[in-house]
């Protein structure tokens, strides 16, 4: 085993973005059923986008045609929607694994110098997930410890390789290549590949997410992610870092006041100490709820409040305001 090889430096020490690290408590918030529900609603599932033709190099089957009654069609539509919801499962947001604090299982000094290389022991029992599999390393000096992230990735890839994941780290996640991809607006591709390549608790995965989401936020590329499984993660990232204003502005621009309300609700749950956290949403008073957020917490008050009154009027006069 060549486990002594270290990861390329630039991958680990990707430029430290001024984003909050995910802690256990934020991760717990993400898994809350109400947050999951809100994030799913915000995703705005578009069936034509979810079930678009995927190109894995597979053999294609001809479509099936059926005669159905209206009831049966409705039933099938519902089934399709349920399948779409399953496809919208968000990659979990969990705290990054800390490789500097590996659990030491035993330190047998008698074994000192038993070999020149490390021994890795992997539990390959059927039915254990990659995240929970027990992998330990015996160092040449007799130390028996938990395997670190890189060792876990390599062992899991050797014994239970995932389709689409590679043993080596793809070059596209290097800083310059990643930036080029972001500039080309290939956000979905980056996020999909990162999700298949890495475990959600990998530090590299967190770095990639931070870079991509920051780029999306700065360039207002929210529409690229809408109706994909990553939109919920994006919203959670924005709420966690207190930068939901751009998305809110876009929602208001496009007359999606409902989405704005859900977004602020997520923000309230993620930031319970914020000023607007105590404001309760009353049904039918969406605009006031959004207004209260803008007044209390928004950092772009002037832009939002300048825009908001006209939006308010338009909605009540029934005039369709064009986007942008």
């Amino acid at each position: 085993m060549f486990l002594n090889k270290l990861l390329p430096r630039h991958l680990i020490h990707a430029k430290s973005l001024s984003t909050k690290t995910i802690t256990k408590s934020t991760s717990a918030l993400f898994f809350k059923p109400e947050v999951q529900e809100l994030l799913l609603k915000l995703t705005r599932i578009d069936l034509s986008k979810v079930f678009r033709k995927q190109k894995y190099g597979q053999e294609l089957k001809p479509p099936e045609y059926k005669f159905l009654t209206t009831e049966e069609v409705e039933k099938l539509k519902e089934e399709a929607y349920n399948r779409a919801i399953k496809k919208m499962q968000m990659p979990p947001i969990v705290p990054a694994r800390d490789d500097s604090k590996l659990e030491v299982l035993s330190n047998d000094k008698e074994l000192l110098g038993h070999d020149v290389c490390k021994y890795v022991f992997t539990d390959i029992t059927f039915g254990i997930s990659d995240a929970k599999r027990i992998i330990v390393v015996r160092e040449p000096d007799g130390l028996l410890r938990e395997a670190n992230t890189n060792e876990r990735h390599r062992m899991n890839n050797i014994y239970f390789s995932r389709p689409g994941a590679t043993y080596k780290h793809p070059d596209m996640f290097e800083e310059e290549n990643l930036k080029a991809l972001c500039d080309r607006k290939e956000y979905v591709f980056i996020l999909d590949r990162a999700a298949t390549q890495y475990e959600p608790d990998d530090q590299l995965y967190h770095n990639i997410l931070n870079t991509t989401f920051t780029h999306i936020h700065e360039n207002n590329g929210f529409d690229h992610l809408r109706s994909t499984r990553h939109f919920g993660c994006l919203v959670f990232f924005l709420a966690n870092n207190n930068i939901i204003d751009n998305l809110l502005l876009q929602n208001l621009h496009c007359n999606m006041i409902e989405d704005a309300v859900w977004l602020i609700k997520v923000y309230q749950i993620v930031n319970p100490e914020s000023k607007c956290a105590t404001v309760e949403h009353i049904q039918g008073k969406d605009t006031e709820f959004v207004q209260s957020y803008i007044d209390l917490d928004s950092s772009k008050k002037d832009i939002l409040s300048h825009f908001f009154p006209s939006q308010f009027l338009c909605q009540y006069n029934g005039i369709f305001l064009s986007c942008g």
């Binding site: 991760s27 717990a28 898994f31 059923p33 995927q54 190109k55 894995y56 496809k87 499962q89 990659p91 979990p92 969990v94 997930s129 995240a131 929970k132 995932r162 389709p163 689409g164 590679t166 793809p170 070059d171 596209m172 290549n177 990643l178 080029a180 991809l181 290939e186 591709f189 980056i190 999909d192 590949r193 999700a195 298949t196 959600p200 608790d201």
Partner: peptide, 25 residues
């Protein structure tokens, strides 16, 4: 493909949330 110059579709990866957060349903 490795450098990300050509994009392609990746197979869907299903997560079991129980692995990552035991208390979630």
């Amino acid at each position: 493909k490795n450098k990300g110059l050509i994009t392609f579709d990746l197979p869907f990866r299903e997560y079991n949330y129980k692995d990552y957060f035991p208390t979630s349903v």
